[in-house]
């Protein structure tokens, strides 16, 4: 019978082992950057960031005591969350912050080889539940259906290694989109979450945009830190 303490350490080292090497991570980051800039191919991944953005608005609304009516997703990557009540500052801030945070959490899940299939299934299920609860129009439901396929189809693959890489690239794309999207708000006067937060708090909109950029950059850096620490641990073990 294995020692529980040893078993715990072994599991932990295995989960760390699921993290990619530094070179692999940089390749995955480069691949994510390229895909986010490829026309047409980047469209579903824009939807992915938009979905997590609106999902974060919705969850923040529920957590602050509000009610979510529905969400709308558009083919160009835009999205809307219709809600009642809640705390507007938290709800407004949660969009870009939540997208970056979701990206980081998905990256962490992608470094867990044993749970990689469950992670894909959970994310696909979350998209389906969102479509059932908050999807009202045909376009939004269609986009959510595409995202559900994006998460559930890789489960057909037999090798977990590809699944892990695929999910990490997706997570990095979400974070990169979360990093790029707030910059669009700088060109929008009186529109978007930054303008709403500026009216709510009297803090200029560009400060909010900078905060979101910093948070997204920190999330990507945390991913690197995780990869780096895993690589160091593996060197020490050898």
């Amino acid at each position: 019978m294995p020692d529980p303490l040893t078993q715990g350490i072994t599991d932990k080292s295995e989960s760390k082992a699921g993290a990619p090497g530094r070179g692999r991570f940089l390749i995955e980051l480069l691949l994510a950057m390229v895909i986010t800039r490829l026309p047409f191919i980047n469209v579903p991944f824009k939807w992915l960031e938009s979905y997590f953005h609106e999902l974060s608005h919705g969850l923040a609304t529920l957590l602050t005591g509000g009610i979510v009516s529905h969400i709308q997703l558009f083919p160009n990557g835009a999205g809307l969350c219709f809600s009642q009540g809640g705390w507007p500052v938290v709800i407004g801030f949660s969009g870009y912050f939540g997208a970056a945070l979701w990206g980081y959490l998905i990256f962490i899940l992608a470094t867990w080889p044993r749970g990689i299939r469950m992670s894909f299934a959970m994310l696909g299920s979350a998209v389906i539940v969102t479509a059932l609860l908050w999807g009202r129009d045909l376009l939004t439901i269609s986009i959510l259906a595409c995202l559900a396929v994006l998460f559930l189809l890789p489960l057909k693959l037999s090798r977990n290694r590809f699944l892990g890489s695929g999910l990490r690239v997706m997570a990095l794309m979400i974070m990169l989109n979360a990093l790029a999207s707030p910059t669009v708000l700088l060109g929008l006067n009186g529109k978007g979450d930054a303008a709403m937060l500026a009216t709510q708090t009297w803090i200029p909109g560009w400060i909010w945009v900078m905060a979101w950029l910093a948070i997204s950059a920190v999330m990507i850096f945390l991913c690197w830190r995780r990869v780096d620490s895993a690589a160091k641990n593996s060197v020490i073990k050898r």
Partner: peptide, 10 residues
């Protein structure tokens, strides 16, 4: 308005 109005977050 707070009771029945709908807020929109982009």
């Amino acid at each position: 308005q707070q009771m029945v109005g709908i807020d929109t977050y982009a």
